[in-house]
Design a protein around this nucleic acid. Structure first.
Length: 783
RNA sequence: UGCCCCGUGGCUCAAUUGGCAGAGCAUCUGGUUCUGGUCCAGAGGGUUGAUGGUUCGAGUCCAUCCGGGGCAGCCA
């Protein structure tokens, strides 16, 4: 047993399961996970979620359990896989900051073992060689509405199966001639269980095996075996494999020796990651790459990890993002603002500030000496970030500022440069715009300004008015020209793959914008992979492929948040709320309209019983219909009635408790009989015990049987309705929760539930609810 | 139409396993700031998909319905 307090917090349902397993001592204190990609494409943000989940668990549980996380290439299909993808995946995992140590495996290395299991299954009569054609197999599988029909080869002898299987392995047959199938149930309502294929013949070149093997396993065969071979404890995958779990369990139960059963791997599914305004499927990403919509797998607009990396997104931001979105079973689409937030959040404290202009507008300081250049020592960090550092920045007569930091006819609220207005140049002087110089076509060519020498640094100026705005600038002579690549969302709609149209019709034509900018020269002093904040613009770094000291190229990692920018794509929250409300209303109408008469499905005879239950015994319609339509339940009901004649109470207990608790267990298999059940109901009904205590007792009866009255004596669960005792208990509860009591007295009536919970806990669920509430009210009103 | 999974503020998740419906992001306001960034304070925003039932008490249990998704590859 582990020390409970030592377990990492159960931040999601999977970690909750792991904590339970650890507490229960399952798997011998081991937690072994795996990241099992097929090397047939570049890993993307969705894979990052899985990587962080699996490797994160191994990391976080290392102190309380024997943990590891395997990197396993699920390379079972020779036609789509290649070494290129293997190395891309390895790089991505390492880049994200994870390490598989010695545990890098390939499914292709297990083929012989898979074959041995196939032989075992055949010998057990759990698998057979099917020689139908592909079409025949498909047709005979049936549909979701019709059962399948068994293959004519289904009952081949073990010897014949073994012989065929061996020759399949030896390469005696062409592709598709035979397959190995599990022998399960061709009529199963679960399509996956209609004799799933296990092995197929492919005479193809495998990037790892070469041409020495031709019997390739299907996913359903390979995956559970891979997990078992590697001693995985928790096999985590995405939701679409939910159905496959049936085969997974079926197979392991048949393949594992009895003593290994307890610690066999279990599969748990979580929902895959979707992000707004992008696509996250290898197939779709491949299309974009092949069509040339993007420049390659590492195009910075792509959600591939290679693309994100090239764009400059720090791996820590991706980890934080994955942490942030959590792990659940509900399908969802995350807003990109969440991702951007994670990026800004990590860069804010790690990216030193420099100044760069993306859209230059020339400014001439008419009262500044033409020959002078002053070098200013400027801090690399703002006052609120606790980092040290500075850089030298040149300042002279001609500068560049951002074109949109000037408006000839300033709109309301505009705090920057305009004719006649002054503005603070970040970390230097206040300047005033004196004259606008135009091109022939009337557009603004440059600005003539004056600067106030008295405003340098933190010195307050005497004659210049205090400007409202601060803008960034770069010296025109010493500034370095560079290519700025600004990236916008790849698609123009939130869910490009959602509609009926081809997702590519939603490509955003402006997803890449290239500008000619100017950056301060200090960036040449740092390594070329330094990430910066270009003040007031965004986070940037040099493109690792295309940038050089001679020809600088900066990628915008993410822009700064800008509350001033008129964001035309902000959503109308009010409208969304209205739409949702409307949708809810419609749904309610539909839901109510489709409500059926509970007796509708009943047979003639059952309906008579239903009528009697409903009218004579006073059962609810639903309860009456349920009992009338279920033979064993009805018998149990009648039986119980003969011991305690309280039809409504008995029926309620059967419908709401018994039925739920027994699941598909047969009623005769229960550890108690109808008489004891009736006794329990009588105890509640006659107020010997509370409803709540009765539920606890029922739970015990379900687990180990027993006589309810005896359990009551055993546990001392008699209902407490003694006024003085309850009064005392109420007083104590109120004393222990004086804050809540004050709030209650101030009108927060809903806190009664809280107090009831406390008093119930204190009395082991035995306090008479009415009396307890009365006592509480009394005590609370007296305070 | 068979079976399976999923519905909690605009978005993503919580809710001590039946006991005060909360947090972060987004939005809006105010404060700080030589970045319209960051940070701080505050506000708005919910019939927990719906209806009925059990219970002193239901987001949580039961029934029915509605909506979304998955399964009929020799893909994974």
């Amino acid at each position: 047993m582990s020390d409970d307090s030592a377990l990492p917090p159960a931040t999601n349902f999977i970690r909750e399961i792991i904590n339970d397993d650890l507490r229960a001592g399952r798997h011998g204190k081991r937690v072994v996970t795996r990241f099992p990609p097929e090397p047939n494409g570049y890993p993307h943000l969705g894979h990052a979620k899985s990587i962080c989940l699996n490797f994160g668990i191994a990391q976080d549980y290392a102190d309380v359990a024997d943990t590891r996380c395997h990197l396993r290439f699920d390379d079972t299909n020779p036609e789509t896989e290649s070494e290129e993808y293997v190395s891309a995946i390895k790089e991505a995992v390492q880049w994200l900051g994870y390490d598989w140590d010695a545990h890098c495996y390939h499914a292709a290395d297990y083929f012989e073992q898979f074959y041995d299991v196939a032989v075992k299954l055949v010998k057990q009569g759990d698998a057979y060689v099917d020689s139908q054609t592909e079409e025949e197999i498909r047709e005979n599988r049936g549909t979701v509405n019709e059962p399948g029909v068994p293959s004519p080869y289904r009952d081949r002898s073990v010897e014949e199966n073994l012989d065929l299987l061996q020759r399949m392995r030896e390469g005696a047959f062409d592709d598709g001639k035979h397959v190995l199938r599990a022998k399960i149930d061709m009529a199963s309502p679960h399509m996956i269980m209609r004799d799933p294929l296990l092995l197929r013949i492919k005479h193809a070149h495998h990037y790892r095996r070469g041409d020495d093997w031709c019997l390739y396993p299907m996913y359903d065969f390979a995956h559970p075996l891979e997990d078992a071979i590697e001693d995985i404890t928790h096999s985590l995958c995405t939701l679409e494999f939910d159905n496959n779990r049936r085969v997974y369990d079926w197979l392991l139960e048949r393949c594992l020796p009895e003593e290994e059963h307890e610690s066999r791997p279990h599969q748990y599914e979580f929902s895959r990651l979707n992000v707004g305004y992008t696509v996250m499927s290898k197939r779709k990403l491949l299309q974009l790459v092949e069509r040339g919509d993007v420049a390659g797998w590492d195009d910075p607009r792509l959600p591939t990890l290679a693309g994100l990396r090239r764009r400059g997104v720090p791996p820590a931001a991706i980890r934080a993002f994955c942490e942030d979105v959590g792990v659940t079973r509900t399908e969802s689409r995350v807003q990109i603002s969440r991702f951007e937030h994670a990026i800004r959040d990590t860069l804010n404290t790690t990216a030193p500030r420099v100044m760069a202009v993306i859209n230059p507008l020339k400014v001439v300081l008419t009262n500044y000496s033409a020959d002078d250049t002053e070098w200013m020592e400027l801090p690399s960090w703002p006052h609120d970030i606790d980092n040290e550092g500075s850089r030298r920045v040149p300042f002279s007569r001609t500068l560049y500022i951002e074109r949109n930091d000037f408006q000839e006819d300033p709109e309301d609220g505009f705090r920057r440069l305009a004719p006649g207005r002054a503005v603070r140049l970040r970390n230097s002087y206040v300047i005033t715009c004196e004259r606008v110089v135009r091109n022939d076509d009337g557009t603004v060519k440059e600005l003539h300004c004056t600067y106030d020498p008295a405003t340098k640094g933190n010195v307050a100026s005497t004659d210049s008015p205090t400007p409202q705005g601060v803008i960034h600038w770069v010296d025109a002579q010493a500034g370095l020209p560079f290519e700025a690549r600004l990236y916008d969302r790849l698609f123009s709609v939130p869910a490009p793959d959602g509609g009926d149209e081809d997702f590519k019709t939603h490509l955003n034509p402006d997803s890449l914008q290239v500008h000619e900018g100017i950056v301060e020269p200090s960036i040449l002093d740092a390594p070329s992979d330094q990430r910066y904040q270009f003040e007031r613009v965004g986070y940037f770094w040099q493109d690792p492929e295309d940038s050089s000291r001679k020809a600088l190229v900066f990628n915008q990692i993410v822009p700064l948040r800008d509350r001033w920018a008129d964001d035309d794509d902000t959503v109308d929250l009010e409208a969304e709320r209205k739409a949702k409300e409307e949708a809810k209303r419609k749904q309610r109408e539909r839901s109510i309209a489709a409500q059926r008469d509970p007796a509708e499905q009943l047979s003639e005879a059952e309906r008579a019983v239903y009528e009697q239950y409903h009218r004579e015994l006073g059962l609810t319609r639903d309860g009456a219909a349920l009992l009338a339509g279920d033979e064993p339940l009805r018998t149990f009901f009648q039986d119980a009635l003969s011991h305690y004649d309280a039809p409504q109470a008995i029926a309620n207990w059967i419908v709401n408790e018994l039925q739920a608790a027994r699941k598909d267990q047969s009623l005769t298999a229960l550890p108690f009989d109808a008489r004891q059940f009736a006794d329990l109901v009588r105890l509640v009904d006659t107020e010997v015990i509370t409803n709540r205590a009765a539920r606890d007792i029922f739970g015990r009866m379900m687990a180990e049987g027993g006589d309810p009255a005896a359990i009551v004596e055993d546990e001392g669960l008699h209902q407490i309705d003694d006024t003085d005792a309850l009064r005392e208990a109420a007083q104590q509860v109120v004393n222990e929760n004086s804050d809540e009591a004050t709030r209650f007295r101030n009108g927060e009536q809903q806190l009664m539930g809280f107090f009831m919970g406390q008093i119930m806990r204190a009395t082991n669920g035995s306090a008479d609810p009415q009396e307890a509430q009365a006592a509480l009210r009394k005590v609370l009103s007296e305070g």
